[in-house]
Every structure is written in structure tokens, then in C-alpha cells.
């Protein structure tokens, strides 16, 4: 099982692009975690292990182009490799949706990136959908509904 505590997306420039918290953490603590992990992960060399111990939990990260996907998971109960697979599946799904996703896509379509993530991971951090096509179909349906809503607004 994998119960992700949080997922962060940080650019190589150290800018936080996405953040999703699956456990209740105080705002001050969140800022502390983001700041600490940004410097810890960015400072790690490319060939270093993708799993780091941080505080009372483990952090699994993976780099795609100029973006670092960082997940906090429980020390004993969660599977690091499964978490890496989830991250990879998330990136693959975004890649299909945006067509070769890049940092700019995430900056300007952050709500879509969150929607895709929400389709894959439940609010408690456990994985809910592994099928890329199911996730994309749901997102497509949401897009159609959104377009129709916009049209209804114009027509009314």
C-alpha cells in the first residue's frame, strides 16, 4: 500500500509549482517542510538514491526534466517503489493530456494538474485509480462539462 502524506512539485530553480497535502499539517510546518525539502532534494546529485529520510517519515522523489516530484510517505507502512510508480503514472498521464508536458503547462494549467492528481489519489493519500485512460476520460468529461457551463453562461 501507499499512503502519501503530501506531494510537492518543485522546479530546478527552487520554485514550488504544486503542493497537495493528504494529512493535516499546520501551515507553519508545511512551510518548514517545503523549505527544507527544496534545499535537501535540489542539493542531491543525480545518481543518488531517490529515497531520503526526513523527520519522522520518508521522502521519495523523482526528477523529470526540470521538475522534481516529491512525496512524503510513512516510515514503515508505505512502499517507496510503489510511490515512485505512482509519480511516474502521474507524469505519464499529464504527458498524454498536455502532449509532452513541461513546466510552463503546469504553471498555466495548474488546475488541470490538480484535477489529474485528484483522479489518481484520494484525499487520504491512497491510490484510487491506476488506469491512465480512465483518468483521462474523467478529465475529458470534466472539460466538456466546463465548456458547456461556459457556453450556458454566455447563452443566458
Amino acid at each position: 500500500m501507499a499512503n502519501i502524506k503530501y506531494m510537492l512539485l518543485i522546479s530546478r530553480q527552487g520554485k514550488l509549482r504544486l503542493q497537495k497535502w493528504y494529512t493535516a499539517i499546520a501551515a507553519k510546518e508545511k512551510t518548514k517542510i517545503v523549505k527544507a525539502l527544496t534545499s535537501i532534494i535540489l542539493a542531491r546529485k543525480k545518481k543518488m538514491c531517490n529515497i531520503v529520510e526526513y523527520g519522522d517519515h520518508k521522502v521519495v522523489y523523482r526528477r523529470y526534466a526540470s521538475l522534481y516530484f516529491i512525496c512524503g510517505i510513512s516510515q514503515n507502512s508505505d512502499n517507496e517503489l510503489l510511490t515512485l510508480e505512482i509519480v511516474h503514472r502521474y507524469v505519464e498521464t499529464m504527458d498524454t493530456y498536455f502532449g509532452n508536458v513541461c513546466e510552463l503547462d503546469i504553471i498555466f494549467n495548474f488546475e488541470k494538474a490538480y484535477n489529474i492528481l485528484d483522479e489518481m489519489i484520494m484525499c487520504d493519500g491512497s491510490i484510487t485509480e491506476t488506469s491512465k485512460s480512465n483518468v483521462l476520460n474523467n478529465i475529458k468529461t470534466m472539460d466538456i462539462l466546463e465548456n458547456n457551463d461556459n457556453l450556458d453562461r454566455v447563452l443566458s
Binding site: 522546479s11 530553480q13 520554485k15 523529470y64 526534466a65 513541461c102 513546466e103 510552463l104
Partner: peptide, 20 residues
Amino acid sequence: NVTKYGERVGLSRAIDIIDT
């Protein structure tokens, strides 16, 4: 050219940095 991490290099990367 891209690195094995899919990151663009050279002047293309410079354009990416300005973009973001």
C-alpha cells in the same frame, strides 16, 4: 538535445528559464 531526464539543454534551456 535533451538530457536523460528529458531536460532541454543549451539555448533551448535558456528559453525555458525565461519562459518560466
